[in-house]
Nucleic acid binder design. Structure first.
Lengths: 195, 195
DNA sequence: GGAGTAGCTTAGTCACGGTTAAGTATTCTA
DNA sequence: TAGAATACTTAACCGTGACTAAGCTACTCC
């Protein structure tokens, strides 16, 4: 049994940890967290099962880290945008940003709102808080862009609807990337503008 | 230990089977299929665990039936609409129908596209076929309503995006029912019209 | 060149939960 | 009123899969 361990000082540029996270994301997206075993993840990474525990406390904490990262990433991007342009002008670039993310990270999108229930309570809490902050920025941006008074709860529901629209990428089939991006942007703008 | 079995000849009007299906749907929606035990379902129904096996072959087949029912129900409603009005005029009523469904069945919506992976392969196949037929009707309706030639794959992606928009009801918070219905209809129409 | 450490291995252990077995009470039917 | 059918009960089984233990190898850094 010839092993080529060590012949790969860091094959890609991702740390082992990130590599596992990425591999696990694809597996979770395809089969669901509960249906993927620790051995599955190991095998897909070219190592065997329990090796995972040298990088993560548990299967659940791996999931937790994955989900928290996504939420943090989206939130930080939204904050950056709002820092660069005024709140009232932030909506379009945020739509563009979110569409890019959804198109380029279909697996993460799927896992994110399918397997959150499988994460630890504390991680769920953290993810929900981050999401909530993210939604707040969108809501504030929509409100800031309108002169008339809007019902905040209605805007919130509308923002969630737009997320639903954009996050449909896992079902979008094999459309050319730029065609999909342009389609989703157009639809998202039209939908939120109709409120 | 006093049992009131039999003092309830058919408490509601649902058969035991339907009652279990409904209870399980709520539990699955809240915790996810994999996190709900057979005992949980039994307890919530006032019976104990294995009683379930007098009504279903397995936990998985219960899920399968639940998912297939949803898909069948949506498809049959779409077919009814198309039978009543012309294909080109079917879109608005279909949006209204789908919105009503999504608003009134949040649990089912959640389970439907979160726990499909946990169903038997055969049930997954059936659900996907039904969904596909449902999407086809929408796509045909959109195409029929336009005089210019549309890219079918693009329309398909757009329809999925509208589903994502409408199916956001599990995240919509506590908005008045009619306000939510009207919001989602407006946004859906605007989104699909923008294509 | 030896020690630390990162990263892995295989061989278990152990709890959880779906499922089966076997038996009981109630209602329905001939 | 037998006895079939329905709907349940509790107790037990047992496969699966997360996780632990203990030990090996090969780099890196003084």
């Amino acid at each position: 049994m010839i092993e080529l361990r060590g012949s790969r000082p860091n094959a890609g540029r991702l740390s082992r940890r990130d590599e596992l996270l990425s591999i696990a994301a694809d597996l979770f997206a395809e089969h669901g967290f509960a249906r993927v075993t620790v051995d599955d993840i190991g095998n897909a990474a070219g190592v065997s099962g329990p090796a995972l525990y040298h990088h993560f406390d548990s299967k659940e904490s791996l999931l937790g880290e994955m989900l928290v990262r996504i939420s943090e990433s989206l939130l930080s991007k939204a904050i950056t945008i709002v820092d660069e342009v005024s709140l009232a002008k932030a909506l379009d670039p945020m739509i563009a940003m979110h569409v890019d993310f959804a198109v380029d990270n279909r697996s993460l999108i799927t896992v994110h709102f399918r397997d959150l229930v499988h994460a630890r309570k504390a991680d769920q809490r953290r993810v929900k808080d981050l999401q909530s902050a993210y939604v707040d920025i969108w809501v504030d941006s929509v409100v800031a862009d309108h002169s008339e008074v809007l019902d905040a709860r209605e805007v919130r529901a509308a923002v969630h609807a737009v997320f639903g629209l954009i996050n449909s990428t896992p079902f979008s089939g094999r459309l050319r990337r730029d065609a999909l991006v342009s389609l989703l942007r157009t639809m998202a703008v039209a939908a939120i503008t109709a409120v």
